[in-house]
Design a binder for these strands. Sequence first.
DNA 1: GACTTTCTTAAGACTTTTCTTAACTCTTTT
DNA 2: AAAAGAGTTAAGAAAAGTCTTAAGAAAGTC
Lengths: 230, 230
Amino acid sequence: MESEINILVVEDDNDINTLLCDIIRNSGYRPQPAFSGTEAVLYLEKRSWDMVLLDLMLPGMSGEELLEKISEQLPVPVMIISAKSEQQTKIEALRTGADDYITKPFDIEEVSARIDSHLRRYRRMNQTLHIKELNYKDIRINTESQIVVVNEKEILFTAREYAILTLLLSSPKKVFTKANLFESVWNEKYYGDDNTISVHMSNLRSKLSKANPHEDYIETVWGVGYKLKT
Amino acid sequence: MESEINILVVEDDNDINTLLCDIIRNSGYRPQPAFSGTEAVLYLEKRSWDMVLLDLMLPGMSGEELLEKISEQLPVPVMIISAKSEQQTKIEALRTGADDYITKPFDIEEVSARIDSHLRRYRRMNQTLHIKELNYKDIRINTESQIVVVNEKEILFTAREYAILTLLLSSPKKVFTKANLFESVWNEKYYGDDNTISVHMSNLRSKLSKANPHEDYIETVWGVGYKLKT
DNA sequence: GACTTTCTTAAGACTTTTCTTAACTCTTTT
DNA sequence: AAAAGAGTTAAGAAAAGTCTTAAGAAAGTC
């Protein structure tokens, strides 16, 4: 299964946003447009990102404010793309936590090359550092080694099962609808009327209960979806 | 004790070199001037660096040539500082492995801010681990001499094979995806659908099992990648 | 420039996972 | 109790991922 690179594009101008998204798509990554700071925050909370392109002049929450928020809380590289060409603004942004700053109008090829450059280096770093541990009850997942330990026993899951499980553990309180799951794990639209997920859930539960028959991990929320048992 | 940050400044113009060194010194880092590509190579071989500032127009070995050499062999971030302002040059440099590109005449504050920005993000990674011996089961690798001993026998591996093997041994529990391997060993983006890695793995395994037929070292993790057998 | 080694590409065989379907059961809601 | 939603199981088919081999391309060496 191919791992996607996700890039958030925060830019209120529709044309520029579309252009940036096209550049990203042409490089083989997956862009997500956001047209305001507040919208960007929602996306940033929803999932993890490999990079953020950020305009400084935004409606509502300013770009600077958002930049500060991101650099304090998230390890994601941020590239500012702004019409503000004053040195002072540029320097402030870089000092606040931006990883790059380019001014409009920009050269398409250069933006593309810079995105690649940052990702290249950042991914290398991510590989050796950034070990995340996911825990829930007696389930321990090391996202680096992809080893899942349940009740002190190492359990082997298929790639899909692993994806579902880590998704659930990443937001222990959230109820995931079937559409949610389909879009996250399969990266496809969900058209309902499909028990593929049921089958996978069934297999997941059976592997889990084999490891620990006394515990119950996944809860069905009737008419909605699934969540971890609280 | 705080460890010093060392930055190599490759620039043939004496005044500019001095200026850059001053900027670096004022930021609390330790600069090392080099006035030609060949001189830079000597410094690069002598010790490890946290960052390299590089002019493209150099006597003897060109900056482009040096950049290529560095990005192939070393994980250090490189910032190009050049009078060449053509987009094509800039893009080529970024694609070759440069982490940033600024044109002369440059703004002192901006250079300073950009250096800090790169160091901030990549500093931890650059704390080059000085591992001299890698061990796993009956495999012993001396990373200085690059000699690999398996089951008391010295085995010769090709450069790629050696790179893959040391990567695996560096994190014995980690599952390396193909993208991981490609980015570390080849220093290139992975677009999937490529069995080069499979072939190298096959060759690696066959060499290893020739040295010790009773042992099994590399495990395939389906749908994910490879790891060392636990 | 010829020789050697190493790397990459391609093709086919092979393995494992995933999907789909279907029949049947269980649970909750109305 | 009936209806709707959800769960389980199993089996075959399809898809995805991997392994191996061999030959040509590229790189490095003398």
